[in-house]
Design a protein around this nucleic acid. Structure first.
Lengths: 96, 96
DNA sequence: TGAATATATGAGCAATTGTTCATATATTAA
DNA sequence: TTAATATATGAACAATTGCTCATATATTCA
């Protein structure tokens, strides 16, 4: 298959976004619906700062989207590509 | 969604395997069928050493498989999860 | 306005990563 | 056996990454 260097880099960046256990766990939580930064941090046992740093990267790669309400920010998965990549990956890990 | 820490780590490792442009280009080449280390290296403009190092990681994650024939080793994609992850990722990068 | 709360961000540091270079192993041919 | 070829591997180094800590911004409430 032919692939421009740019597309290769973009693809690598996309998968990079999913290449850390903390980010995977953030995404797993968001599979259940939108959550605030604090409740993500509480649920994951991470600091809000660490979660916020990770969410920034996920946002930049359009894996999550933010909705502001008052002083909270609720995050959710951006589109269904994300959960499809997630479950396809889980498939690969579980079977063969 | 609930996810054990082990599964989170395994998923992250899987996506890590796809998180580098060189590895993405190796996989793109292998979408066309099996290739030797040398022809991969030639086609990608990488040294055989660099390609071999990367193939080792891909092999360990069961993304590629090796078939030895004489003094050459031919690599191919391990199963269809790989190309499905690849094309799903490409989808995400191209649209939305 | 000022205090409290929720999130974001920059600097800095330890840990990880991808490559090169040198060398090792394995196979074939002479 | 020796030389040549194909691949693999270990060490080392620069570059990147994910966290903590301190601080900044934004919003609500008194």
């Amino acid at each position: 298959m032919k692939l421009t260097e740019l597309k290769a880099i973009q693809l690598a960046e996309l998968f990079s976004s999913l290449s850390d256990a903390s980010r995977i766990r953030i995404i797993a939580q968001l599979m259940g619906g939108e959550m605030s930064v604090r409740s993500l941090a509480d649920g994951l046992g991470m600091t809000e700062s660490a979660v916020s740093h990770q969410l920034r990267g996920l946002r930049q790669m359009h894996l999550v989207r933010a909705r502001k309400s008052g002083r909270q920010v609720f995050y959710s998965l951006d589109d269904d590509h994300v959960s499809r990549l997630f479950t396809l990956g889980l498939d690969h890990v579980q079977h063969g």
